[in-house]
């Protein structure tokens, strides 16, 4: 199966070389970097190393970046698209596990989860994760142990859903949407590192906003999604 790894990157000049090296050394899948109009020299670093990159002229955030990756995957007829952070938190050695699961047809979407075998710690960040997991359980009846994980593999059917509905985000509310559409979601255990350089998308005030957005989106919008006929 043709596999594409989508690496969204915003101001990741210090991390991107390492991330791509990790991907190319540990897997033999194709990758695409989505440079979301970085203010630092991410673009130059990628060009210098001749990385496969899509460079956006206007910054539009992570959602737009993933959507573009999905468009690219669809256009080039990829069977699997994997969302993979460019900040060095994700490790490429686990990607094989995700791809194998999809190849065995066990599910449509595989989440690289931190808490399949391990227990969830009681940190402030994880309170949000628990709350989202609870709301997902409430609306779909399914248990997702790590809904906020940014490492997800989508099969062709899921990619098509992304193309069909341009309001889908690479966030937990999309998982609810996909489940309501009848797609199966499974999790595999992975480990993640803390980020080394640069700033994350999530800052304190931003994460409160994020939580409110997610809760509203899941309960009032995604939970009433209808299946395709």
């Amino acid at each position: 199966m043709k596999v594409l790894i989508i690496i969204p990157a915003y101001n990741e000049a210090q991390n991107i070389e390492k991330t791509v090296k990790d991907v190319t050394e540990n897997t033999n899948y194709d990758y695409i970097i989505i440079n979301d109009c970085s203010k630092d020299n991410t673009k130059e670093v990628c060009e210098k190393n001749n990385f496969n990159m899509l460079s956006l002229p206007i910054n539009y955030g992570l959602t737009s970046g993933i959507q573009l990756g999905m468009k690219y995957a669809y256009k080039n007829n990829y069977d699997i698209a994997i969302q993979f952070d460019g900040d060095g938190q994700h490790q490429a050695k686990y990607l094989k596990k995700l791809v194998e699961k999809i190849e065995n047809n066990s599910a449509d979407i595989i989440i690289g989860s931190r808490f399949v075998e391990k227990k969830k710690p009681f940190s402030t960040r994880m309170i949000g994760s628990r709350l989202i997991a609870f709301i997902i359980k409430l609306t779909t009846g399914k248990t997702i142990k790590d809904p906020t994980s940014g490492m997800r593999a989508y099969n062709k059917r899921a990619i098509q859903e992304f193309i069909r509905n341009m309001s889908l985000t690479p966030e937990p509310d999309t998982l609810v949407y996909m489940m309501k559409k009848g797609l199966k979601i499974e999790e595999v255990q992975v480990e993640m590192k803390d980020r080394e350089f640069g700033e994350s998308y999530l800052k304190p005030l931003k994460s409160i906003q994020y939580m409110i957005n997610m809760i509203f989106s899941i309960i009032f919008i995604r939970a009433i999604t209808r299946k395709n006929k």
Binding site: M53, L54, S55, L56, P57, Y60, L68, K71, Y72, K75
Partner: peptide, 13 residues
């Protein structure tokens, strides 16, 4: 504008 943004990126590629 987002569509245009994507279009430009894909075209450049």
């Amino acid at each position: 504008i987002k569509e245009l943004d994507h279009y430009i990126a894909l075209k450049e590629h």
